[in-house]
């Protein structure tokens, strides 16, 4: 079992640098480009096989149906880039959705409910972050505790599903902007905005560079005088807030809060981020890559529905793809080590 932590490219390999060394930039973009290639191949193959696949309607729904996953993936990208992992996102998403449904049911105005959702997500992220940073608990276990806690609290809020009737929340999904063919819902717009913000923060802010530096080598980051402790807590808070936003999108998508929502979503999110080219050891990856990863996931899901095959094939395909990408990453890391 040989572990490699050295391999992640330095933070200067990101898009922010003016003239990065040629090889470096290729190394960190290769998995993303591979994901883009796979996405295009899948689109073309599906188009050839099904005939009418690449329709504006399908492309629009691909974005809208996976909006919550994109938001989760954006948050997860931060955590994985810093060298951690957050298993709590699916449960936190379900919990914030459940909380919102309950609050709306008892008549709390929506202007209070939505900030409450984000705050609930942020608090759960904060707890995980503090456990990871200050109590030296492994991210995997800390976020596992967060997952248990959030999932259990769902059932404390209510054992049954709660229907959501609030027009603002439902409007996020039901308002269709654009014509009948190309359309976009506010949920889709929120998802794209979140991805854009994530890409900007990671690429062009001091905090973003710190996250890359921590994932690359936490040692050097600390020696460089970067605010390691603060940033490490912050990535989990960001992931928590993203889970809160995803909770809003998912509630609006399903029009109900339900405790069993989003079981296994954390795995889908991690898979999407990894397929999108983020190195699991941290330090290398892009928010835009995660967007591509989610789209690959979406296309697999739709194709399997189109084929009429058993939906269990979605998970198998994602698993195989995840494996393929991890092996590719492993090879890239090995090659980078030799240089």
């Amino acid at each position: 079992m040989s572990q490699t932590n050295v391999a992640a490219p330095t933070p200067t390999a990101g898009p922010a640098t003016k003239r990065p060394p040629r090889l470096r930039i290729r190394t960190s973009w290769v998995p993303v480009l591979a994901a883009v290639a796979i996405l295009i191949i899948m689109f073309l193959a599906a188009q050839l096989y099904f005939g009418r696949f690449l329709t504006p309607r399908l492309l629009s729904s691909l974005l809208v149906d996976n909006a919550y996953l994109m938001v989760l993936a954006a948050g997860m990208t931060f955590v994985i880039l810093s060298g951690g992992i957050d298993l709590s996102v699916g449960a936190v998403m379900a919990f914030t959705g459940m909380l919102a449904a309950k609050l709306l049911l008892i008549g709390v105005p929506v202007a209070v409910v939505i900030p409450t959702m984000l705050a609930a997500g942020a608090v759960s992220g904060l707890i995980i972050g503090i456990m990871v940073q200050y109590f030296d608990v492994q991210p995997f276990i800390a976020s596992l505790a967060g997952m248990f806690l959030a999932r259990g609290l769902c059932f404390v809020v209510s054992l049954e599903a709660i229907q959501v009737k609030d027009p603002t929340v439902l409007g996020l999904q039901s308002t269709k902007l654009g014509d009948f063919e190309w359309y976009l819902t506010p949920t889709g717009i929120i998802a794209l905005v979140v991805i854009a913000i994530a890409a900007w923060v990671l690429g062009y802010t001091r905090f973003g560079r710190t996250v890359y530096a921590i994932g690359g080598n936490v040692h050097s980051a600390r020696l460089m005088g970067l605010p390691v402790a603060r940033s490490k807590v912050l990535v989990y808070v960001i992931s928590g807030i993203c889970a809160g936003i995803a909770g809003l999108l998912f509630t609006s998508y399903t029009a109900a809060g339900y405790s069993l929502n989003g079981i296994g979503t954390e795995l889908d999110t991690i898979a999407a981020v990894v397929i999108g080219g983020t190195l699991l050891t941290g330090g290398s990856g892009y928010a835009l890559g995660s967007l591509i990863g989610v789209l690959v996931y979406g296309v697999i899901k739709v194709s399997i529905t189109f084929l009429g095959a058993d939906s269990s094939w979605t998970r198998i395909t994602i698993g195989v793809l995840l494996l393929a990408f991890v092996v590719v990453q492993r090879l890239i890391v090995r090659r980078a080590n030799r240089h």
Partner: peptide
């Protein structure tokens, strides 16, 4: 996957965790 290919254990086993239930359903 872990010992020979050198993938991190959490990911190597995550693959089967994802795909395994699908295989069982098949």
């Amino acid at each position: 996957l872990v010992a020979v290919v050198g993938i991190q254990p959490i990911i190597a086993t995550l693959v089967l965790m994802l795909a395994g239930r699908g295989i069982a359903l098949l």
